[in-house]
């Protein structure tokens, strides 16, 4: 499989929710492409639409506008859509305590995909395959008869990963898969995900708010703010040369584990995220932006390449200043 093949893409997807007569735009006109075998990180503060985007990518939510394509084919709509998508795209959830049915044993949870897709594997081979999956994610196959409550958070997340792997999907959407885990366990789970990618060629959409996690696993990242992508590009490029003032703020907010280094707080993000019920006009970020100009509140900036063909940014001030 070539690295340039597109495994999953979102084209101009938007999602709006109605609450008490008001319309809340959770995801606004987002374009996204995930190539085979790569990891695309999505970062942003809570409530920026990351999880809604993830749900649309696996089909748990249907976009109001735009479409999600799996290997170039538009994702079907309707009740039975998961029968087709489930073998291509799977999801790993944030909270390992609610993502496993407490009444089923770990083995039953991992076997369920084969019971839903009966044709994938004959009954006689299922148990063996479940044992293999347990080993694959670093769990002892002897623990198949235990209930989720008998596992630790990290082990539970491994069960969730085994379930997602069962149908051999090309893409796994990970919605903050390590946010609920201890730091030491986070690294183990991330190493497992990286190992699976190397061995099985799986592509990840990896959602996180923790930038250090992102740098470990992502090839490319997209930074979201209030439902829109404000910057995207190769992970090193975005971290080393952040263009958008919001990205710079996020990176500066990461604590530096060095007491000698005085923290540079010049571009620390100020204020709160505006309510998505009343989005700011023009550039969504202008209310908190340290370099905002009067024109920023009038025009919505487009995501355009800047200084590097794959490094895209949506900021008129940044792109305008250098082109002049």
């Amino acid at each position: 499989m070539s690295r340039n093949e597109i495994a999953l893409s979102a084209e101009a997807v938007s999602k709006r929710y109605r609450t008490r007569g008001k319309s809340l735009t959770a995801v606004d006109n987002v374009d996204l492409t995930l190539r085979s075998g790569e990891t695309l990180g999505i970062v942003g503060e809570s409530g920026c639409g990351k999880s809604t985007l993830a749900k649309m990518l696996v089909g748990l939510e249907s976009p109001d506008d735009g479409e999600v394509r799996i290997e170039g084919k538009t994702m079907a709509r309707g009740v039975r859509r998961f029968m087709a998508t489930s073998r291509k795209v799977q999801m790993v959830f944030q909270d390992p305590y609610t993502s496993l049915d407490p009444r089923l044993t770990a083995g039953q949870i991992v076997r369920e995909p084969f019971e839903i897709h009966r044709g994938v594997l004959p009954k006689a081979q299922r148990e063996k395959r479940v044992a293999e999956l347990f080993e694959r994610v670093g769990l002892s196959p002897d623990h198949r008869n235990r209930y989720p409550a008998e596992f630790s958070g990290g082990q539970r997340q491994r069960i969730g990963i085994a379930r997602a792997l069962a149908l051999q999907p090309k893409v796994i959407v990970c919605d903050e898969p390590v946010a609920a885990l201890d730091v030491s366990v986070q690294a183990q789970v991330i190493n497992l995900l990286a190992e699976l990618q190397r061995d099985l060629g799986i592509s990840y959409v990896f959602i996180a708010h923790d930038l250090s996690v992102m740098r470990q696993i992502a090839n490319r990242i997209a930074v979201m703010y209030l439902g829109s992508i404000v910057e995207s590009g190769p992970v090193d490029r975005v971290f080393d040369y952040p263009l958008h003032p919001y990205t710079q703020g996020l990176i500066d907010a990461v604590p530096v584990p060095d007491p000698e280094k005085a923290a540079d707080r010049s571009s620390t993000l100020l204020g709160d995220v505006p309510s998505p019920l009343r989005l700011p006009s023009g550039c969504r970020f202008h209310t908190r932006c340290p370099i905002a100009e009067p024109s920023c509140s009038e025009q919505i900036p487009q995501l355009v390449p800047h200084r590097h063909e794959e490094h895209l940014v949506a900021c008129e001030v940044v792109t305008g200043a250098t082109s002049n």
Partner: peptide, 25 residues
């Protein structure tokens, strides 16, 4: 609960979700 969403993304029918996941819980 996420485990219901997970089962949905696996392609499970409503009947399966009810019998296998909701009723036991």
């Amino acid at each position: 609960m996420d485990y219901i969403k997970a089962t949905k993304t696996l392609g499970a029918t409503d009947l399966r979700i009810v019998v296998r996941h909701i009723l036991p819980n």
